[in-house]
Amino acid sequence: MNMPATKIEVETAKPASAAAPVVAMTPKRPPRSETYARMARETAVRIIPPLVVIALLLLVWELVCRRAGSALPPPSKVFKDTKELILDPFFDHGGIDKGLFWHLSASLQRVAFGYSLSAIAGIALGVLVGQSVWAMRGLDPLFQVLRTIPPLAWLPLSLAAFRDGQPSAIFVIFITSIWPIIINTAVGIRNIPQDYRNVAAVVQLNPLEFFAKIMIPAAAPYIFTGLRIGIGLSWLAIVAAEMLIGGVGIGFFIWDAWNSSHISEIILALFYVGIIGFVLDRLIAGAGKIVTRGTALN
């Protein structure tokens, strides 16, 4: 029984050892040009379809809006009308006659301020609600009702309270974006595995260490989901709020353009609003990816 078995081993061992180095050597050489080619192909696969779709849509738009008397301008006219705004976003003629950069930056500043406040308060409240059953029973019904109130419904109230446009706008952003942050944080905290709590108990972490070393990292994926929804909502809210409060800001720019019948400017502004909303979302998603690199995997 033994002999043939050993024979087979010897026979198979030889070609294997001869083949192994060859296999190991070959993949080291050619990859450079090949990987570049593959990368180019992969990016092309991702980039070409959206480009094609956008080009088609522009074409349809152009064809539909080209005829005389159409209510909306075709893309070519939009570009012609707004060329100055696109090329010089930094001019400042005083008042609200400023370049788009200033409008956007004013809006972004409001969002940054209101959103930071809601992130801090939202995570804090979320931890409270997630950790304490009593707090959850007390606060959750309140949150569920308040979160359904549309952002702009808060504006008159906050104007009455603050008697100024700027803090009112910030408050509207705050109150709009805080709910998903609270709710997601609370869910994340409630879902911390008992194992992690046991580990913390055995190691005897104090509440502060538990918060920083276990709770926040364990709930991070949920918290970032909330933060991401929150940033989207605050960008939605700011444009609407600014239309009403006036002053410098992309929302009022759009409203102002409508009042002066500059439809092309509205379209340009919408384009910028969309792009910035997208970038904000990606920023939070990217930050989340970095922070949760370990947690999300498991």
């Binding site: 194992d195 580990v199 108990a201 055995v202 991070a220 949760t292 947690t295």
Partner: peptide, 20 residues
């Protein structure tokens, strides 16, 4: 009657913190 490092536990499912 409370947990502590004098009675360290090796948990069944390792319970390592995945972010560390």
């Amino acid at each position: 009657n409370s947990p502590g490092p004098d009675r360290a536990v090796v948990f069944q499912n390792h319970s390592l913190l995945p972010w560390l």
